[in-house]
């Protein structure tokens, strides 16, 4: 096995990190009972996707830099960040509304959302 520290990193390594964060987010969304924990899982998923966009947009992480997405990857990552912020605002408003109406933040008890 070659020493990891002396080799240059590539898109594969970034994708591995993105995959770990994505799976962490999925497991977080599936297992948390607190509605805000589910929201944090969504943030992790979006970040895992963003890492892939940035890695493919980078000019020097692939052997052939002509294959990289260039600036497109970074622009899409910016849009993802903005949409994640918007999603967090609306989801938090819904969660707070649910908390005000039901005095609970447990998603297992959110089977009827009509206040």
């Amino acid at each position: 096995m070659t020493n990891l520290l002396t080799q240059p990193v590539g898109v594969s390594h970034y994708m591995a990190v993105g995959a770990v964060m994505f799976v962490c987010g999925i497991v977080c969304m599936a297992t948390k009972r607190n509605a805000l924990g589910v929201l944090m899982g969504i943030e992790l998923v979006l970040n895992g996707a963003n890492i892939n966009f940035i890695a493919f947009g980078s000019a020097y992480l692939q052997k052939d830099s002509a294959m990289s997405l260039g600036l497109d990857g970074q622009l899409i990552a910016l849009f993802v960040i903005v949409l994640a912020a918007a999603e967090a605002a609306v989801a938090l408003a819904i969660a707070l509304n649910f908390y005000n109406n039901h005095h609970s933040i447990d998603v297992d008890r959110a089977d009827e959302l009509k206040g």
Binding site: P8, V9, G10, V11, S12, M15, A16, S58, Y60, K63
Partner: peptide
């Protein structure tokens, strides 16, 4: 996902 990430030779090492 991990198998996919390490399946393409061009992605394994860049010119950092």
């Amino acid at each position: 996902l991990l198998q996919t990430a390490f399946s393409v030779d061009d992605w394994k090492a860049g010119d950092t």
